[in-house]
Amino acid sequence: MIPIELDINGQTIEMEVVPDLTLLDLLRAVGVVSVKKGCGEGDCGACGVLLDGVYVKSCLILAAQASGHSVETVESLGNVEHPHPLQTAFVDAGAVQCGFCIPSMLLAAKSLIEDHPEPTVEQIREGLDGNLCRCTGYVKQIEAVQTAAAVMKEEDHD
């Protein structure tokens, strides 16, 4: 067993884990179920999280590797009462259907807007290239990210 300590959405967790536990499985085991397991091998992007602010696939990160770092998931973005501009824009644009891919896609979008506060379509396509969506067809998300970026710029939102 390997002792780890990490910050998940502002809360510090300390525990002992088996060495092959992935960050994805750890998050789901402690109740952060917005992080989804699609393929479990780096292809689908349903498991995306921000690790120290960097967008990564949590199925390819070991829990032990994440120790000492901070993890952010969609839970920290907003909720139904107080949605983040990205969440509002995704819903308004009709960019959400079954929703399986969306928590991760929102984090990818957040990260790409941080890098490019006024993203071009090309920058959005590149920023979302690790997120498969089997429902929507990838068009509405691009619109939603542009709308959200504009709102965030106005509100100077983080």
Partner: peptide, 9 residues
């Protein structure tokens, strides 16, 4: 190479 979250690591 791969996609953004893979290139990030």
């Amino acid at each position: 190479i791969g996609s953004t979250p893979l290139r990030n690591v």
